[in-house]
Amino acid sequence: MIVIKLNIGGLVPKIPLIQGGMAVGVSLDNLAAAVANEGGIGIIGTAGIGMLIDGYQKKFKEANIESLKKVIRSAKEKTNGIIGVNIMVALTDYADMVKTAIKEKVDVIISGAGLPLQLPSFLEEGTKTKLIPVVSSVKAARVIFKRWLKKYNYIPDAFIVEGPKAGGHLGYNKEDLENPEYALEKSIEDVVLFSKEIEEKYGKIVPVIAAGGIDTSDQVKKFFKLGASGIQVGTPFITTKECDADIKFKETIINSKKEDITIIKSPVGLPGRAVKNKFLEDVENGMKKPFKCAYHCIKTCNFKEAPYCIAEALMNAARGDLENGFAFSGANGYKINKITTVKEVINNLFKEGI
C-alpha cells in the first residue's frame, strides 16, 4: 500500500512517480499514456520531436510545434491520467515549446538542462499547468526560487533533484560524477531542508522528487526516508513494451554490460551517459559523421565543429538504426535483462509498499 502522497500544487497522482522525459523519440504518447494509466505522471520528451514529421529539415521550428501538439493530443486520447512534458532550457525554440505545451493544457512542464529562470513568464491567466524545475543542487534550487518569486511572484510547484547516475545529458562536470559531495542522497537532503524553509516562510508545500539511477524498491524507500515525496524514473521504462522506441533500441539496453555504460562528451557541451557502441567508438577515434545542420536546435551545440549531429544520432537509434546512432542510459541500465511492461516496472519499484 502506498501511503506517500505526491502533491504538486493540487495535482495528486495515485503513485508518487514521474516517468523521465526521454527525448528524441523515446518517450512519446504511448509510454506517457501507459504510465499515466497506471497512476503515475507520464512525460513526453520534447527535444527533437519535430523529427517525427516528414520533411522536418525544411521547417524544423514549425515541425516541432506541429508534432508536439499531435503527440500531446494523442497521449490525452489514450488516458485520463496526468500528462506532462519535459522541455530543455537549452532548446533554441524553448519558448515555442513551452507556449505550445501550455496552450495544449498539459498538466506539468518539467524543465532542466539549464536554469529555467523565465519559465513562469509564459503562463497565461487561468493556466493550470504546474511548473517543475530540474536541479542538481540546492544552490540551483535557491537561484530559481529567488528569481521566480521576485520577478513573477511564483513559487515552484516541486523540485526534481537529478543525481549523477541519471542517463542522457547530465548537469555535472565529468569529474564530479563520482564525487560523494554530489551524490543524490546529499542533494536530496539539502533541497528538502530548503523546501521546508519555503513552506515555513511562504506557506506553500514544494515537494522534492528524487531522480537518477533509481531502479529498486529499496532505493525508493531510502529516498522517501530522506524526505523525498516522489521519484522520477527513466531507463527502466525504456525496455517496456509500451515505450515508443524501436525494439533494437530496447535490446541495446538489455544486452549492455556494466563496462558498456560510458560517459561521452556531447556536442551540446555536456557530459552524457550512454551505451558504448561502434558509432561512439568511431567518434572517439576521431571519425566525423557527415551531416548538414538543418536547425541549430540546441543553443550550446557547436554544430560547425561537432563530429556528428546528436539529434540525428539519437533519433536514428530510437528508430532502430544503431549503426548511425546510440542509446542514452542511466548508470544501472546494464542490470535490465528483459522486456517488461510499465505495470511491472511500477510494481517492482513499489512492490513492498511505501
Rank of each mutant, 00 (worst) to 15 (best):
N7K: 04
I18D: 01
G21M: 02
M22W: 00
A23D: 14
S27R: 01
D29T: 05
N30F: 04
L31C: 05
A32V: 12
A33K: 01
A33F: 02
A34D: 09
V35R: 00
V35E: 01
N37C: 03
G40W: 00
G42Y: 00
I44T: 04
I44R: 00
A47T: 13
G50W: 00
M51D: 02
M51N: 09
I53R: 15
G55E: 05
Q57G: 13
K58E: 15
K59P: 07
K59W: 09
K61P: 09
A63W: 02
K69T: 15
G81Q: 05
G84R: 02
A90C: 10
T100S: 07
A101D: 08
K105M: 06
D107V: 10
V108I: 15
I109Q: 01
I109A: 03
S111W: 00
P116C: 09
L117D: 00
Q118I: 12
L119H: 06
F122H: 15
L123E: 11
E124W: 09
E124G: 14
G126Q: 13
V138R: 14
I144H: 01
K150C: 06
N153H: 12
P156A: 11
A158V: 07
F159W: 08
F159D: 02
V161N: 01
G163C: 08
P164Q: 09
L170H: 01
P180E: 07
Y182W: 11
Y182P: 01
K186P: 03
E189P: 06
E189F: 07
E189G: 07
E197R: 11
K201P: 04
V208L: 03
A211E: 02
G212P: 02
G213I: 05
G213T: 05
G213C: 11
T216S: 14
F224K: 06
G227P: 10
G227E: 10
A228V: 12
A228P: 05
G230M: 02
V233D: 00
T239A: 14
K241G: 06
C243S: 15
C243M: 11
T252R: 14
N255T: 14
K257I: 06
K258A: 11
E259Y: 12
E259F: 10
K265V: 15
G269Q: 07
G272L: 03
K276M: 15
E284H: 06
N285S: 10
N285C: 09
K292Q: 12
C293F: 07
Y295H: 12
I298V: 15
K299Q: 12
T300R: 03
C301W: 00
A306W: 06
P307W: 11
Y308C: 08
Y308F: 15
G320H: 04
F326K: 05
F328V: 10
A331V: 13
Y334I: 05
K335R: 15
V345Q: 01
N347K: 15
F350S: 04
I354F: 14
